[in-house]
């Protein structure tokens, strides 16, 4: 059979599209100019005086746009809530993902504390190094995902503790904001002492907010993954 017969029209069209996109992206890439002065550079200029954090992204997420982060966390909570309503939470786990594998169980037991520790490191050092609440929370949740995949039904998640963590961190975020109204001037204002750039206890409320966000995200993604793994076999 010749090669020509196997090539469909769809393949040719998508190949042309891919090459067109490649050429466009390359031309955009070669003409990129990284030196424009915009909102970003002005934020970088005022960052050190206002927040004393080493990571500008963190100060944007938790200070300059703190209210947006609150809305984002609420949207995440609502979407997980909707998934929990939509997926029936059956008590049995699908057996196809959890082989009875001794090596995997041992490795997961060794790796799980390391992954959770790394996630909390990322959360706590959000204002000093890259990362923060969302990233660290997702890393913690991936540690729980590893344990769920390795152990299957034998790994019990305590839903009461997860719910307590999730609600307390959400309430704590709002409480920090209201304290900002009382002690400072506006919602989520930075009322704590700022400290020195580069130290762990510095830049006011930003690490506290990121710890709350990290706990909330970790709890929510863990529950999401567990919902997916625990659903009944449809087919």
């Amino acid at each position: 059979m010749s090669i020509k017969k196997n090539i469909e029209l769809q393949t040719i069209i998508s190949g042309l599209l891919v090459s067109f996109m490649t050429i466009t992206l390359l031309s955009v890439l070669l003409g990129l100019d990284y030196t424009d002065k915009n909102l970003g550079s002005s934020l970088i200029d005022i960052n050190e005086d206002l927040t004393r954090s080493a990571n500008v992204v963190t100060s944007v997420v938790t200070y300059f746009r703190g209210l947006d982060t609150l809305g984002e966390v609420t949207i995440l909570f609502l979407s997980i809530f909707g998934i929990g309503l939509g997926i029936e939470n059956s008590p049995h786990m699908k057996n196809i993902l959890s082989y009875d594998n001794t090596l995997l169980k041992l490795g997961a037991k060794v790796l799980f504390p390391l992954i959770v520790l790394f996630g909390f490191y990322i959360i706590i050092h959000g204002h000093l190094s890259p990362g923060g609440g969302f990233q660290g929370g997702v890393i913690v949740a991936s540690g729980f995902l590893l344990m769920l995949l390795a152990y299957g039904e034998a790994f019990h998640l305590n839903h009461k503790i997860i719910t307590v963590f999730e609600s307390l961190s959400g309430a704590g975020f709002v409480l920090i904001g209201i304290l900002g109204v009382i002690l400072g001037d506006i919602f989520l204002s930075n009322m704590l002492p700022l400290g020195v750039v580069g130290q762990l206890f510095s830049s006011g409320i930003m690490p506290i907010i990121y710890i709350f966000v990290g706990l909330k995200v970790a709890a929510e993604i863990t529950v999401l993954v567990e919902y997916f793994l625990r659903t009944e076999d449809v087919g």
């Binding site: 990571n55 890259p130 995902l145 993954v225 659903t231």
Partner: peptide
């Protein structure tokens, strides 16, 4: 690097598992 961390965990880990399940 912040976005890269998120993408490394979500794009290469959790979303793949969710899709596979």
């Amino acid at each position: 690097p912040d976005v890269a961390l998120t993408e490394a965990v979500i794009g290469a880990g959790i979303s793949g598992v969710v899709f596979l399940v």
